[in-house]
Design a protein around this nucleic acid. Structure first.
Length: 431
RNA sequence: GUCCCCAUCGUCUAAUGGCCAGGACAACAGCCUUUCGAGCUGACAAUGCGGGUUCGAUUCCCGCUGGGGACACCA
């Protein structure tokens, strides 16, 4: 029997990191076993469901590269199916109408099921003496719709969060009442925040879309998520998604909750950015910069490629591009007060910057070696330490005390702009 | 409160009775360097506690403690 799994989010919020990991594990399991991954939207809460969240969920899954083999299917469009099953139980005397809904009395018993990650779990059903099947608004409840759909869709494995363990015995009872065969279950541990409680906005971003927007590469995010609660054995950390598919084994999923660690995510993302080709990085940069209005749609690709090459092994997130390197894209630049105070307001700086400007004006080529040569020559001529010229120049050209290697930055910014910035700094900022 | 689940460095994890409990992130130190970063090197750091079982327990069993989750006509 081929594997069929499903991811069944409810559109009552943006796609949460925890849900994304559940989706990922299902997807990995399906792909590993050459099975089918079904997407089902559980929109049976009329008050809280919102089409905008469906869009967010779809977009977020797309970002992660998790594509559904079937679906999305909407529960709100299969009401007849649930009604039919409820009627069947009523006809058999197993359920009854109450307050306009349908309820299912539960006989006290102990239910044991074998969980793929936890082993046997036993629950006493006297904890819940009845289950609501259909609400008085005509929509099915979660546990009922879930059972009817999983059976109808021939789901073989239900992989979901730990927090659903208590629902499983309820669903098992319904399978039995309906005469249906239940799937296998794997309850994966929750992702928790730094407070060890389930990941919430309180301890960091929870929406997958936010991570996308900050500039985490999908394979880095997927890689990180996969490592939360699972490890292939050996000492692999940086494992591209295609390889994770091959290695993934739900039996190796840990039982304990895993804490989300942004620093490790950052490190992994940096690794993937470093491994990305300049071509790809240029595309990613262009997309961001155009969206933020920092370059025009007719941007100079060769120029942006140089920037990609320069920043490739310095970025942890793509957002650092526009946050820390605005001086590459805007004119005039902004100057950090502290950098100006510490590095420009000193005797002789203005003269040095002015002298450098004069030398740079003479240059026929503004490639990095020529720029560096001009600066070094001035340093030698004036008997300066290299830092004495370089640091103030950095502030004059970038507005900041830290930047990528200065001479390449200058070359990229270009002769005219560099000269203009040196002139401005010498005249208005330097001592 | 009741029920369920869980427990290895600060964090993510490896080791499913047997080499000095391994790796990674972070933090720290050093090297490199025009700043930062990247890179390289180094040091520090864990089996929650108490009982068992066993020649031998991170590993198996029991208890405790601690943490989390679930207890809706939400999903």
């Amino acid at each position: 029997m081929s594997v069929r799994v499903r991811f069944a989010p409810s559109p009552t919020g943006t796609l949460h990191v925890g849900s994304a990991r559940t989706a990922l594990f299902n997807w990995l399991y399906a792909k590993h076993h050459r099975g089918t991954f079904v997407l089902r939207i559980e929109d049976t809460d009329q008050k809280r469901s919102n089409p905008a969240f469906v869009e967010d969920i779809l977009a977020s899954l797309h970002y992660l590269g998790i594509v559904a083999d079937e679906g999305p299917t909407f529960q709100s469009q299969r009401l007849a199916l649930y009604r039919q099953h409820a009627d069947q139980l009523i006809a058999q005397g197993k359920a009854k109408t109450e307050d306009g809904g349908v309820v299912f009395p539960v006989a006290p018993q102990t239910v044991t099921f074998r969980d793929l990650v936890h082993g046997d779990i036993t629950v006493d059903t006297s904890l819940f003496e009845q289950l609501v099947l259909m609400k008085s608004d005509g929509l099915p409840t979660y546990n009922f719709a879930c059972v009817v759909d999983d059976a109808a869709m021939q789901i073989t494995h239900v992989i979901r969060g730990d927090d659903h363990i208590a629902n499983t015995p309820k669903q098992l009872i319904l399978y039995q009442a309906l005469g249906l065969t239940p799937p296998a279950y794997a309850h994966i541990p929750l992702i928790v925040g730094s407070d060890r409680a389930r990941l919430s906005k309180r301890t960091g971003a929870t929406a997958v879309a936010d991570y996308r927007d900050v500039g985490y590469l999908p394979e880095a995010f997927v890689n990180y998520l996969a490592l939360l609660g699972w490890a292939p054995g050996g000492n692999r950390e940086c494992i591209p998604p295609t390889e994770i598919v091959e290695l993934f084994d739900v039996a190796r999923v840990r039982k304990a909750a895993a804490q989300f660690d942004q620093q490790k995510l950052d490190w992994l993302n940096g690794q993937y950015i470093k491994q990305a080709t300049v071509e790809r990085l240029t595309d990613l940069f262009a997309e961001r910069l155009i969206a933020k209005g920092l370059v025009s749609v007719t941007y100079d690709r060769a120029w942006l490629s140089r920037i990609a090459g320069l920043l490739r092994d310095r970025l942890k997130t793509l957002s650092q591009l526009e946050e820390e390197h605005r001086f590459l894209f805007v004119e005039p630049i902004e100057y950090e007060d502290e950098a100006v105070q510490q590095l420009l307001r000193r005797d002789g700086i203005a003269a040095n910057l002015s002298a450098l400007k004069d030398r740079l004006k003479q240059l026929g080529s503004f490639e990095t070696p020529q720029v560096e040569q001009a600066a070094r020559a001035l340093i030698a001529q004036r008997g300066l330490g290299a830092k004495d010229l370089i640091h103030p120049t950095r502030v004059a050209v970038t507005g900041r005390a830290v930047s990528p290697p200065l001479f390449e930055v200058m070359s990229i910014v270009g002769q005219a702009k560099v000269i203009g910035r040196l002139e401005y700094a010498a005249a208005h900022l330097a001592g």
